[in-house]
Amino acid sequence: MNKSRIRVLLAKPGLDGHDRGAKVVARALRDAGMEVIYTGIRQTPEMIVEAAIQEDVNVVGLSILSGAHLELFPPIIEGLRKKGREDALVIAGGIIPEDDIPTLQQMGVKAVFGPGISTEDIISFIQKEITQHSAC
């Protein structure tokens, strides 16, 4: 596991077309040596779970700016659990009010990266989490 590259699924749940952030993060993670699969826009929770299983990823990154995160994240996390992939690191980014972050963390979202965050922070967070995980 340590030797293989970290595999990341970046997905855009819901209907919003704002993909600037997702694409910038996809490119930055790729430049940092990770294997990145970006789904494109308008993905349903079911499509995202399916892609995460198919691509056998370590990380699922969800980018959303429409405000539908409280409705769309639970079926994704539930779907991963049902397929036995509760070990996947789920992180999120986009326009997410601070008040919602504790709720999302309780659901199992490990971190929320809002506007202004540096891609370096996302990269080091993923690297740290995945290394710790595979060391156990």
Partner: peptide, 22 residues
């Protein structure tokens, strides 16, 4: 909102969570 822009009524399954949001 996004369902109106993408041609779905508010009771369409793809409109879940998006009604009246943006």
């Amino acid at each position: 909102d996004l369902p109106t822009q993408i041609g779905y009524d508010s009771d369409h399954p793809l409109a879940r969570g998006e009604v009246g949001k943006v």
